[in-house]
Nucleic acid binder design. Sequence first.
DNA 1: TCGACTACCTACCGTCCGGTAGGTAGTCGA
DNA 2: TCGACTACCTACCGGACGGTAGGTAGTCGA
Lengths: 206, 206
Amino acid sequence: MTAPAIRSGRAVSEGGSRRLILDMAARLLRSGGYHQTTLREIAEAVGIRKASLYHHFASKEEIVEAVVTDGVRFVHEAVAAALEAAVQAGPRQRLEAAVAAHLSALHGHGDYTSAAIKVFTFGSGPTPQGVRLSRRLYEDVWRGLVAELQQAGAIAPGRSPEALRLFLLGAMNGSIDWYRPERFDIGVLSREFAALVAPDGQGIAS
Amino acid sequence: MTAPAIRSGRAVSEGGSRRLILDMAARLLRSGGYHQTTLREIAEAVGIRKASLYHHFASKEEIVEAVVTDGVRFVHEAVAAALEAAVQAGPRQRLEAAVAAHLSALHGHGDYTSAAIKVFTFGSGPTPQGVRLSRRLYEDVWRGLVAELQQAGAIAPGRSPEALRLFLLGAMNGSIDWYRPERFDIGVLSREFAALVAPDGQGIAS
DNA sequence: TCGACTACCTACCGTCCGGTAGGTAGTCGA
DNA sequence: TCGACTACCTACCGGACGGTAGGTAGTCGA
């Protein structure tokens, strides 16, 4: 009685299965983290048998790594693009744009970025080197931005740049626990974040 | 050949087994979260067989709940005591004291508080009602403190108090991912945190 | 001394995990 | 038309999971 679904050899999309697997894995990883997410769940969400996942990926780790790498790359590119678009703006506006881009990548777009944060903020699963590297590179974007803000005098003198960066990233990533699109607006939140780090009346513009 | 260890009926301490189990569970939960921590690991760390855990607790959930509840209560009491001790100080000093108490509970003391955050920041395991309640009560402490700061004019006008509280808690709890006692000083960090939320030159003292 | 009780133990349960072996239907270039 | 290839399938593996059944030493009050 269980409808066997339409099976048709090459299925609907050619080669799209890999993306579909990653999409479903990202969704499940986002809500459950590494250990709660099982290959059976992923396979079921995709609509195939668990063993078929091994036709596209060699292991669970490989699937998770692909999701996490994509997630980090996505938020990295979004923030880099936002900073490039605001290259002529003042430091405060650049900060606000970067924060908005980060939060949008986290909440507005797919599940990849949230999944990435869930997975390696847990510290649960094994963290491959490629993931560590891409994460490091993304952190450097913020390191650079904080340094730029400090150089422009936009942040209060005496603040530790490293503490500032950790505070900011931690607070933004922590929003996956409380952000609800109907309760908060990313633009408003970004202004709040930026105002904390670079208060009004500070910097070259004043 | 496997040394059967010293078995002696009532063992070393009377009734202390329960605490020992929770101590070990807290340590494991802190580093592994809910799903990675197994009853076998806990039992091994304690030095008893897995089935013996059920003499003290009815289920894994009950153990985890006890650890989490203790962790929240500990940080709650620490922050409340710090605020009480600084009842005569200015708002900025009170904020700094609360932040220092929270961070100390997280990093300076046992594993309970970090375990609590790891467990329900994951959103992994089931969250019993008792845990939700104690967490809510603790959040109210910060809600009250932010309101007090706002009333005293210590934070910039126009800031959303709820956003401020969420940022602060998120950033502090995020520190479990990067805090290392040899790289950071809790006193210094607390001053950094407080300076962001309640910048100098603001409030009744100026 | 003897029953109740405490704090453990060994042995086992069904279930689910990630992963593997080997098969099969459809597609496509030669 | 036919072999190679792709994309899936069924069936199974050993092992780990949380949890249960039932037993056994030691303690202690009556």
